[in-house]
Amino acid sequence: MCPGEVSGRGGTAQTGCHRCGHAVLLGTMSTERSHTVPETENGSRLDAFVARVLRDGNGCGVRAAKRLIEDGAVLVDGKPRPAQFKLRTGNVVAVHREIPPSSPDTLVLAGIGGEYLAFAKPAGLHTARIAGSAEPSLEQALAAQWETVRKSPLLPEHHPIPDVLRAVLGPLPHEESTTVPALPPEPPALLSRLDAVTSGIVLAAASDGAASRFRAMEAAGRVCKYYLAVVDGILDTAVSVTNALNTSNRAQTKVLPEADPDPARHTALYPLGEAASFPIPGAAGGTTLAAICIKRGARHQIRAHLAHAGFPICGDTLYGREQGGAPFRLHHARLVIPEFSFFCLPTWLPLTPIV
């Protein structure tokens, strides 16, 4: 199902997928540091201050600091602030950082279909390379490890798909064959980007022609992107959020009162059950495992739309509310294009719910 199909809860038919299933996402570690602003930093910009205090073995430039701020990983006295915010002596700046797995284990293929490759990005790993930062990214890993991946691709394990997911995401067939097509000599170009805190599928194209075809399909509304999230509140019915978005402020997307006339910019939200019934590690009572579908997507669209609907993602300090350190759970689980479908489960979701 995609936005505009909220009333229909049946599965969506699809054509054969070369490989789809459960991709084993590698775990991440997280750190949270609090820094009290000294007198010498009074009046400093938030991004410059974060860059300075995080300069360690991994390094952190101003652009990397801005990315952390935009992802909601930086709070000033418990509140999100823009990168240009001027600090005052005594402010407490808390920085939450996901430490991604190091190379060479970062690259995991979630599937291959024709000239398209789907990579499973773990939470905490940037999608694109950040200038001035030594922090790892999927783009860097592709450049460094592609020759190894071509020779011995790390492919996903196959597992039965839980019925509760099949009912919403549609049938998820996969071929029994383990044959892998010849991969191109040059690293594929990434076609999508996920926030560092978000895990899941990032699609890549093996040729310029494949990239152009994907962009055309996306513009025509023929691409469906399905996410899984743990949201705050008990969601018991499907919700469609049609509000337009203002993304001019990179730090935080604003939800506008008027509807967006383009259905491809809407967000559809479907309940899968109370999160505690699966059980999901770290999920508190009063939370719901939800499926989300978008067709194109704008910056922070899902996070902003869900918060506007009254069901912010748990642990989202930028758009939600403080929840006692609840982990952030947003995962791009399935991508459907006219000829292929890719699927991978997050590590935090058990394969079957408690009966």
Results as ranks from 00 to 15, higher is better:
283 A>Y: 11
272 L>Q: 03
261 P>T: 08
278 F>G: 00
308 H>A: 14
251 A>S: 15
262 D>N: 15
255 V>D: 13
301 Q>P: 01
278 F>Y: 12
306 L>V: 05
253 T>E: 03
287 T>E: 13
284 A>I: 03
301 Q>I: 00
262 D>Q: 13
299 R>C: 11
269 L>Q: 01
282 G>V: 00
261 P>H: 09
265 R>C: 15
284 A>C: 04
274 E>Y: 11
267 T>A: 02
297 G>I: 07
308 H>M: 03
277 S>L: 14
288 T>Y: 01
295 K>L: 14
265 R>M: 15
308 H>L: 06
313 I>S: 03
285 G>R: 13
309 A>E: 07
282 G>S: 11
309 A>P: 01
276 A>P: 04
272 L>W: 08
311 F>N: 03
264 A>T: 08
251 A>W: 06
264 A>Y: 08
288 T>P: 06
307 A>Q: 01
274 E>R: 14
292 I>L: 14
273 G>D: 07
292 I>E: 04
301 Q>F: 01
309 A>W: 06
303 R>F: 11
278 F>A: 09
288 T>C: 08
277 S>M: 14
315 G>W: 09
287 T>W: 08
298 A>Y: 09
283 A>S: 11
304 A>K: 05
315 G>H: 12
285 G>L: 14
254 K>P: 00
264 A>Q: 06
275 A>F: 11
285 G>M: 12
311 F>P: 00
254 K>E: 10
267 T>E: 08
301 Q>R: 02
292 I>P: 04
259 A>T: 14
316 D>Y: 11
280 I>R: 11
259 A>V: 15
256 L>Y: 10
256 L>D: 02
253 T>S: 05
282 G>N: 05
296 R>P: 04
289 L>S: 06
255 V>R: 04
295 K>R: 15
309 A>K: 04
253 T>F: 02
